[in-house]
């Protein structure tokens, strides 16, 4: 399988390149949308929620950055898994004609989204610098910021795992898409993107369980520890998020491996 992937590394690179190129073709601003989009949505969310959750306090430190951290990670998660989900079905024309290791499609789609996500992190850096320079409730920048790649990497593997599972389901059942849209909405509200869990007094056991079970909750929290609070993350988050992403990677790979020969009969 490793040898197989090595032989098809050119195709992998071509698909990643294609996705990035095509995403911003025909738009005047081109790749700048990657930066403008998170910036604008953050401005909107700040305006909407600043009255309710936005009091910069000890809990959120700096609301715009708090929000940006959560939003960018969630956005990468939902975009990349949705793209991966459709990738195999959209490539039916090729898959029916030429032999290609099919796992290339979901993985390369997550990867291309990952690259645009990394580019969009510039916005976060710009915001941090802006607040630092204006000295307007600056974030606690410490050496822990250099550990921010850990939650990002965990998130990448989580998305690959989920992407593999979804792409298989989508081949066999077309309504996976609609169900997953609803699921993503659930994940969005169960991820502390615009609120802080400690600000809310959640009495519902189900909601609290949902928050704990959501690996994105742990990943976003880890990321904020590094970037915003400048402290070591809670190790429970790390164990859970890393465990979940390894588990989903294994499940996804196994499911894909077991079913890939049947794809052609359903496409």
């Amino acid at each position: 399988m490793i040898k197989n992937l090595y032989n098809y590394r050119y195709l992998f690179a071509e698909i990643v390149r294609k996705n990035i190129k095509l995403q911003y073709r025909n738009s005047v601003l081109g790749i700048f949308w990657t930066l403008l989009q998170p910036f604008l949505t953050t401005v909107v969310l700040v305006l909407v929620f600043s009255g309710i959750f936005g009091k910069s306090s000890k809990l959120v430190v700096n609301y715009p950055i708090y929000l940006l951290c959560g939003r960018m990670l969630y956005e990468f998660f939902s975009q990349s898994t949705k793209r991966a989900m459709r990738s195999v079905r959209l490539s039916a024309g090729v898959i029916k004609k030429v032999y290609i290791p099919k796992y290339i499609y979901p993985i390369s789609n997550v990867t291309s989204n990952f690259i645009t996500f990394l580019i969009s992190l510039i916005v976060l850096v710009a915001f941090i610098i802006f607040f630092k320079v204006t000295n307007n409730n600056p974030v606690h920048m410490t050496g822990y910021v250099f550990l921010a790649w850990v939650p990002i990497l965990i998130l990448f593997f989580l998305c690959v795992g989920i992407g593999l599972i979804l792409s298989v389901l989508e081949v066999f059942f077309k309504d996976t898409e609609y169900l997953y849209d609803v699921f993503c909405m659930l994940i969005f509200y169960l991820t502390p993107v615009f609120y802080n869990v400690k600000q809310l007094h959640i009495s519902s056991k189900i909601v609290r369980l949902g928050l704990m079970a959501n690996p994105l909750y742990s990943i976003v929290s880890m990321f904020r520890s590094c970037v915003l609070y400048g402290e070591m993350w809670n190790w429970n988050w790390f164990y859970y998020a890393a465990g979940m992403s390894i588990f989903l990677m294994l499940t996804g790979s196994l499911l894909f491996w077991k079913t890939q020969d049947k794809f052609i009969l359903h496409l």
Binding site: N7, Y8, Y10, L11, A13, E14, I15, K18, L22
Partner: peptide, 17 residues
């Protein structure tokens, strides 16, 4: 959505080149 030129490389990569 890809141009002819870009498709030459994509198609080539599909065949493993």
């Amino acid at each position: 959505n890809y141009t002819g030129k870009e498709n030459i490389f994509l198609y080539g990569a599909t065949m493993g080149f």
